[in-house]
Simulated assay, not measured.
Amino acid sequence: MKWNIGLPSCVLAALLLLASMPAGAGVVMNATRYVYQAGEREIAVKLTNKGTLPVLAQAWIDDGDARSTPEHVDVPFNLTPPISRVESGKSQTLRISFTEGTVPDDRESQFWLNVLEVPPKAESTGDANTIQLAFRYRLKLFYRPKGLKGSAAAAAENLSWGLSRDGILSVTNHSDYHVSLNELRLVSGSETMEAEPLSIAPHASLSPPLPKPLKAARVDVRYQSINDYGGFVPHSTTIDAR
Rank of each mutant, 00 (worst) to 15 (best):
M1R: 13
M1N: 12
I5T: 11
I5P: 04
L12F: 12
A14R: 14
A14C: 00
L18K: 13
S20Y: 03
P22E: 06
A25E: 02
V28G: 00
V28E: 08
T32M: 15
Q37C: 07
Q37E: 15
V45E: 02
L56A: 04
A57F: 03
A59V: 13
I61T: 05
D63C: 04
A66Y: 10
A66S: 04
R67V: 09
S68Y: 07
P70Y: 10
H72E: 12
V75Q: 03
S84I: 06
R85K: 13
K90E: 00
T93W: 05
E100P: 08
D106M: 10
D106Y: 05
S109Q: 10
E117V: 04
V118T: 11
T125K: 12
G126A: 12
L133K: 05
A134C: 08
K140G: 03
L141K: 03
L141E: 10
R144F: 00
P145Y: 14
K146L: 01
K149R: 15
R165G: 01
I168A: 10
V171A: 03
T172V: 12
Y177N: 02
V179M: 06
N182E: 01
L184K: 07
L184R: 04
V187S: 10
E196R: 15
A201Y: 02
A204Q: 10
P208A: 09
A216L: 13
A216I: 09
Q224H: 14
I226D: 04
D228V: 07
G231W: 01
P234M: 03
S236Q: 14
T238F: 02
A241P: 12
A241S: 15
